[in-house]
Each structure stands twice: as structure tokens, then as C-alpha cells.
Design a protein around this nucleic acid. Structure first.
Length: 423
RNA sequence: GGAGAUGUGGCCGAGUGGUCGAAGGCGCUCCCCUGCUAAGGGAGUAUACCUCAAAAGGGUAUCGAGGGUUCGAAUCCCUUCAUCUCCGCCA
């Protein structure tokens, strides 16, 4: 959500930044609506003031027993009430329109975010390790998993349809081991506090983080008006909603290992095979709540926290900064971590780490005490640390042996109960 | 799922249609007195928005949230959310 006052003071700047995301200029439309609203507010408020004044006089007249005067005043109030009712309806309508308009406008990028229309303009920042070289034809994770008899898409399809999987045996354990490793790194080394939040949330929570109203089609909704979380970012970030945070507790770092549910409407045909794109997957999420002046530093720190997992697993990856055209709805800057997948001979996204500035904080009214009588919006950041399913895919593909067995990365052996080879 | 109760300012708590943004207490801030402790006196102490070049000032809204009745609602009605108690069910 955007700051109306800021737009009013600097419309050209906003239009310029929105243009970088490929949007038409919007400030004029917003300000015209805003001006209409303020004019209508004045009229309504004047009428309300007149009504309140007369009503008090009626009370006094009644107290004195002067019925005639009271009746005269009542007639007077009727006029004001007409104005309030008529203008009130108009005002509500205008406000709803402006609200809807603002709610659907994405965040503005930071000045120095690379410009570009789509992912082709994303900028590679750095790489870690050389892409895995196998001296045999690499299999993809789905073939490997099915051959092991521990990854079953057909059985999952029978009960749940496409884009689901049943893991079993060592692969199921591997999934758990990866999550445990990730949580241990983030909680024991990086200062994130582990949370076990709700997986079902109300619409307001999703509005707060920006998934609603625009992206309803990507979400699963229950019959009792709950939504399944598409990411724990929603649950974790909303922990500070409608509150005034003690600045001493900032930055506040939270993590959670949760399932994520995505209906992926409109993605038919993409990554149809395997575990890359599923309706349900596990993810260890990182969320930081910061003071405004610290969010950029925290963003870099969070990137490092996510990278650490891949370093520990000795998986090749690269980090890219998304260009303006590829930024998500709420983000001012985003780093993606892409892991190397031998079967695809390319890097694939395994983590996305965003600084949302005060965009989400405004939508959920999350503030901190900046000074006495000066509460300001916090900044919110979120990132995957990491997507467990895709990490499992990366481990299988990068650690595969010619016979289809999988060497367990050293860092995972303790978490696998000492197992060094999956076969 | 059934029955009932509750929801007021930082906290406690009064207030069942009128001058209530809201008594009183606690806490906090400032001042005075005393000045060792303890105590005493006075003033102040919500948020958002509109108006004003700004400040001062003025105005509107807010007593969980939303809607309604009324000239007027913290107070009456409806819906909803949350909490508590009892019963049922259940991992």
C-alpha cells in the first residue's frame, strides 16, 4: 500500500518508478480521486458539525421543557442529515474506488534496481562453485526418485491429481533432514527464532502481505473463508500486524518450516514433470522486521543466511538481482538464489529474498515507536531459507551416481541417521 | 457443535439515550512544597483524518469491528470477531 501523502508531494517520482515496472502513470488518477474525496469530506464534516451543534441545543431545550424549540431544531437538523446521507454515500463510493486502485498498485523499486522488462535483464551478482560435472548422462530427479522407488507421482495423482507427490523411505527422511539442517542453521547461527504458525489464515492477513486482492487465483480457499498459506511469509509477517513494536526488539528475525499451498493458476504446461512446481511443498521461511534505515543491510544479511544452506550442502548456485520488470508485487528489491540442476543444464530458482520496505507494514498497520508520539511503519523482509522440495531436487541431481544411487552430502549425514548413500 | 457471560483511554474501572473523548483510581510527564524516608498540592497525559503556508486554532471520526434505529448512541437493535465458563466431541 502506498502513502497518499507521499504521492501527493511527489507524484512525478512515483510515476517514474512505476514506469520502471512497466506501469502507466497513475499519480494523476490517484490525486484527482483524492481531491474529490477531500472536498466531499469537508462538506460532510461541516454538515456533521451543524447536526451535532443543533442536537446539543435540542438536548438543552428538552431539559428546559421547551418542546416547541426542540421541534424547530429537529426540522433544522433534517436538512443537515440529508446532506450527510447523500454526500456520505458518494464519499464511501469514492473512497472504495481509491482504496481498490491503491491496493492493486505494486511497490516501487529502489532507485538502483537494474531496469528491464523481464528475467532476461536480471543481473548476476556472484556464483559459488562450478556447475557439477558428471561423467555420465545426468538423470533428472523424477527419474532418479522413481527408480529408487521413493518418489511416486502416479499414486499421488490418484488421490490428489497432478502436481503432487508421495515421497517415502530415505527420500522422505531426506526431506526432513534438509528442513532440520536449514532450521538449525537459521536458528543456531543466524539468530532467527523458530515459529510454528497457522497454515490457514484470513483474507486480511493475505491483504497485509500483498497476495490479496490481486492474486486470489493463485490461492486455495477453504469453505469457511480461510486460505491455505502460499508461503510462511504470510503467517510470520502478520505476527506484527496491527501492533506497535518495541524498537529495542528490532531487527526481529523469525523462521518457520511449513507446507506451502499454491494453486498455480495459469502455469499449466510449465514444469509439469517432477517436483519443481507442486501444489504443495515445504519451505523454511525467513522474515525480518526492521527499522527503515536498516532494511537494506538486513536484506544483504538475509541473502547470506540463505546462501549458507547451499554452501553447507556444497551445491553450485548463483545469485541474481531481479530487474524492475521481474519484481514481485510487494518488493522494492529482490535477490534470487538459483541452484544448478544438471538435468536441465541450467540454474533454477531455489530462493527469493525481498525487501518490501514499508509496503506490507502499511497494509497491515505494523509500526514501531520511533520517538515519543512518533510511531512509524516498520520495514519487512522475507526470503526462503530454503525451499525444501527444490533443495531435495538439487541434492538428488547433483549428488547422483551413475547407478542411480544418491550420495548424501556430508552436512546431511548426521541428519540422515548416518546414512551416506541412498539406493 | 450447544448454553451463557464479557469486550470502555497505557492499565484498572464507572457509565443503560442528551452538555461523554468519556467519572474515579493507578501509572507516566512537568511544576510547587517538604527535602532523610514516606507523604502532600497543582497542571498535563489517545489516535487518525480534514482545514490552515506553518504554528496556534477550528472541525470530523473512533468506547472490539461493521451495519441499523434516533434530532442525538459507549448506552437500544442486528451481524461479526475475540476472550472466559459449562456441556458435547476429538488428535
Amino acid at each position: 500500500m502506498h502513502d497518499l501523502k507521499a504521492i501527493r508531494e511527489n507524484p512525478a517520482e512515483y510515476d517514474k518508478l512505476w514506469a520502471k515496472r512497466g506501469l502507466e502513470p497513475l499519480s494523476k488518477k490517484i490525486m484527482d480521486k483524492d481531491a474529490l474525496i477531500r472536498k466531499a469530506m469537508q462538506v460532510v464534516q461541516e454538515a456533521e458539525a451543524a447536526r451535532n451543534k443543533s442536537s446539543k441545543l435540542i438536548g438543552q431545550a428538552m431539559g428546559k421543557g421547551d418542546k416547541e424549540e426542540a421541534e424547530r431544531l429537529k426540522a433544522e437538523v433534517a436538512g443537515a442529515k440529508n446532506v450527510i446521507a447523500a454526500m456520505g454515500v458518494q464519499l464511501d463510493g469514492e473512497r472504495a474506488e481509491l482504496q481498490a486502485l491503491l491496493a492493486g498498485i505494486p511497490n516501487v523499486p529502489f532507485e538502483d534496481v537494474p531496469e528491464g522488462e523481464d528475467e532476461d535483464s536480471n543481473v548476476e551478482l556472484h556464483k559459488h562453485l562450478e556447475p557439477t560435472k558428471l561423467d555420465f548422462e545426468p538423470k533428472d530427479h523424477a527419474d532418479l526418485g522413481e527408480a529408487l522407488g521413493m518418489m511416486d507421482f502416479e499414486t499421488a495423482a490418484k488421490m490428489s491429481g497432478s502436481r503432487f507427490v508421495v515421497l517415502s523411505g530415505k527420500l522422505s527422511r531426506l526431506d526432513r533432514a534438509l528442513a532440520a539442517l536449514m532450521l538449525d542453521i537459521q536458528t543456531e547461527e543466524n539468530g532467527y527464532v523458530e515459529h510454528s504458525p497457522p497454515f490457514l489464515v484470513r483474507g486480511e492477513a493475505l491483504f497485509g502481505t500483498g497476495q490479496l486482492p490481486k492474486f486470489e487465483a493463485d490461492l486455495y480457499k477453504t469453505t469457511v473463508d480461510h486460505y491455505l498459506i502460499p508461503t510462511a511469509e504470510v503467517s510470520l509477517t502478520n505476527i506484527v500486524r496491527e501492533s506497535i513494536v518495541d524498537p529495542e526488539t528490532l531487527p526481529r528475525r523469525m523462521t518457520a518450516h511449513t507446507p506451502c499451498f499454491r494453486s498455480e493458476a495459469g502455469s499449466a504446461g510449465r514444469d509439469t514433470k517432477g517436483m519443481i512446481r507442486q501444489h504443495q511443498f515445504n519451505k523454511v521461511e525467513l522474515v525480518s522486521i526492521t527499522r527503515p534505515e536498516n532494511s537494506e543491510d538486513e536484506h544483504k544479511r538475509m541473502l547470506g543466511c540463505a546462501e549458507e544452506v547451499l554452501k553447507r550442502l556444497e551445491l553450485p548456485y548463483r545469485v541474481v538481482e531481479l530487474c524492475t520488470g521481474d519484481l514481485g508485487f510487494g518488493a522494492r528489491r529482490t535477490f534470487d538464489i538459483e541452484v544448478w540442476l544438471p538435468s536441465q543444464d541450467t540454474y533454477r530458482e531455489i530462493s527469493s529474498i525481498s525487501n518490501c520496505g514499508d509496503f506490507q507494514a502499511r497494509r497491515m498497520n505494523a509500526r514501531y515507536k520511533h520517538a515519543e508520539k512518533d510511531n512509524r511503519f516498520v520495514h519487512t523482509l522475507n526470503g526462503s531459507g530454503l525451499a525444501v522440495g527444490r533443495t531435495l531436487v538439487a541434492v538428488l541431481e547433483n549428488y547422483q551416481n551413475e547407478d542411480g544411487s544418491i550420495t548424501v552430502p556430508t552436512a546431511l549425514v548426521p541428519y540422515m541417521g548416518g546414512v551416506r548413500l541412498i539406493k
